[in-house]
Write a protein that binds this DNA or RNA. Structure first.
Lengths: 143, 143
DNA sequence: CCCGGATAAGTTGTGCGCAATTGAATTGCG
DNA sequence: CGCAATTCAATTGCGCACAACTTATCCGGG
């Protein structure tokens, strides 16, 4: 029964992949969610996102992001600044250290992808299926 | 970049599916990991597993399972008994209430599967791919 | 038989993830 | 303009996950 459940397969695979990331990220003092935040920030270049925009990208709320960002700020990788235009917003920008980390971590995704044992084609197919599932579910929630 | 990452797709899909489970399980006062534990216990019939055996099935350690099982016991769904043969072991058995829940929850997996928008064939293919990835990773860890 | 290592479960501490609430700032409607 | 509804981030509380450690039990060699 357990073996038949797609959800358990998803849950187990997600934790297994995070296990692969853990030792790689440990070298940089990062957790996987923290790494995801950095991925978003690196992608944005200048134009730092607000906490909400980060949350929309990662599907995490302020209850998760606020303390996480506080830890990234304490590590000197990120700065949080109140927006001058709208004082409710907090913009999350990279420090020089945070930006520099990008170059040092370029090989991390490849090393993780290899550990799955899937080839390029299978990886792309898997990613697309999963993205479709996630979007189907979120579209349903909006109604 | 974020969009390219298989790992993020997996992480997001796993959380999205748990979101689908949440309202269904809430009616029974269960969380998703607690439901997984019950799935294992239902499968075993008599012959209650030890904490370690549960952990091997779900890939969770005693640090996660001990407090979780304590909550299931407090809810009256489970009983924990020291093994007479080996007093280090704790066997986890179902109460009448815990066993009875099985019938009341038979339609849960189907309702969740529907929300993914995938057909039977795609679901099986996805499950098999994910199971393969998980096993590949765990095989690597053992060396 | 005894003791050293191994094994099982539990505990502690940290960091998510999410619901619910709070408090401050902004928007929009009358 | 004025104030009620909304938006945004932060906080609180709870339940996983997981590493590291503790305690109790068992096993096996000498």
């Amino acid at each position: 029964m357990l073996r038949d459940q797609v959800c358990f397969a998803l849950y187990a695979a997600s934790r297994a992949l995070t296990d692969v990331y853990r030792p790689l990220l440990d070298e940089f003092g990062l957790t996987y969610p923290q790494y995801l935040v950095l991925l978003v920030l690196w992608e944005r270049g200048d134009d730092p996102p607000t906490v909400s925009e980060l949350g929309a990208a990662l599907r995490l709320d302020s209850g998760t992001l606020s303390p996480l960002l506080k830890r990234l700020a304490a590590a000197g990788l990120v700065v949080r600044t109140r927006s001058a235009l709208d004082e409710r917003r907090v913009e999350v920008g990279l420090t020089a250290d945070g930006a520099a980390l990008r170059q040092r971590m370029t090989d991390v995704p490849l090393r993780v992808a290899c550990s799955t044992g899937l080839d390029e084609t299978e990886l792309v197919a898997l990613r697309d299926t999963l993205t479709r599932v996630t979007e189907t579910i979120h579209r349903q929630k909006e109604q």
